[in-house]
Design a protein around this nucleic acid. Structure first.
Lengths: 211, 211
DNA sequence: GTCTATACTACGATAGAC
DNA sequence: GTCTATCGTAGTATAGAC
């Protein structure tokens, strides 16, 4: 399928070089198609960019069982909500280390730094649902109605996940490795999980202090 | 000074569009100079890019008092080392919110995702020194010789700082704000500081358990 | 639906006037 | 040291053959 090949290459090229930097000639050539096929299928370079954004957004789903997350939030089950926080963050972290992650992660990073219409479309999908769920889950775990505190905690927790991609080169320098093996990935996942529990415990303790 | 104006614009343009995406014509025009002045001063587009990288690297210094950090590490003073960790992370976080930060932060983010020679030059400066100092400080605070654990902790801690830039658009969505006011910035700084203390305390407890 | 051919613009680099 | 002029290449978009 020529459209599928175009999208795969487009995500990689737009991610690596941005909308301006990537060229339709190069994308078409790598996909084994004529440049005019992009115009035919997507109208223009921008059309292909937005199509690539939608494609990326769709691939962000399934990181955790949305139904289970929703049920835990609905039920207000603190213990189950904590398990869901770990499922969500662990799932996201695992995604960051998957082989194809570089392609779409670069695309999203770029949109984060300089958001265009494409970011709205990406965030409207599974990405935004994951973010909302994390905030809701933290509220349930901490037993707090202080949503702002839960939002701040969600950002900090997500930062621990994001850095392995957004600061990949620095991580390699700090760990003195050019590639990260399974043992290090597992160690970091364990460390993040432990941090998460510690932070959630502190939020619970702070809430009980105030009460 | 025409070279200074060229560097300022170059950092912004290369950060926003990358080496390929940015154009020397546009950079020169915004700096109020002829395009050939880039060739004259920097030899080529790549030369200007590397000069911009060096300029960015230099601006990352002074986030914390290097002498004080070094002294705390040298002395093995746990309490002072913890204060230094807060100084370093707090200083970095404050830098992330400074007005001009977008320009150089975008430049560095881009290099993180797709490192070139420019990243080596940036990391060889204050950025790498800050990273090394953070790992050393954590070792002192936790009283551990498990350097790998300190490295993982440093990455997680730094992730909490990085996300406000690398995931800026998502932060705005989560906090339901289009801009982040001083009150929210202060709240997040406090949250990160509290997380940092909690994590360091846990590392100390884990070390004492093993002993 | 996919290709080739082409029009037009913008790019980086260089030469030479001042 | 800064400018204008120009060269060769590569960019997007479009038209039209098949």
């Amino acid at each position: 399928m020529i459209q599928q090949r175009l999208l795969d290459v487009a995500v990689r090229e737009f991610g690596a070089k941005g909308l301006d930097g990537a060229s339709t000639r190069s994308i078409a050539a790598q996909a084994g198609a004529a440049m005019s096929s992009i115009t035919y299928h997507y109208g223009s370079k921008e059309g292909l960019y937005l199509a690539a954004a939608d494609y990326v957004a769709g691939q962000l789903g399934g990181v955790a069982d949305d139904d289970r997350l929703g049920a835990a939030i609905e039920a207000g089950d603190s213990a189950e909500a904590r398990r869901c926080v770990h499922l969500l963050l662990g799932g996201l972290l695992a995604r960051m280390f998957e082989g194809q992650a570089d392609n779409w992660a670069l695309f999203i990073m770029r949109e984060q730094m300089n958001p265009t219409e494409a970011f709205e479309r990406i965030y409207a999908g599974p990405m935004g649902r994951n973010a909302d769920a994390l905030v809701d889950l933290i509220c349930v775990v901490a037993g707090t109605k202080d949503r702002r505190a839960a939002q701040l905690a969600a950002i900090a927790l997500f930062g621990q996940v994001l850095i392995v991609k957004a600061g990949r080169a620095t991580c390699h320098k700090i760990l003195e490795r050019e590639t990260l093996g399974r043992d290090i990935i597992q160690s970091y996942s364990d460390h993040v999980a432990a941090n998460t529990d510690t932070i959630l415990d502190r939020m619970i303790a702070e809430r009980e202090e105030q009460a």
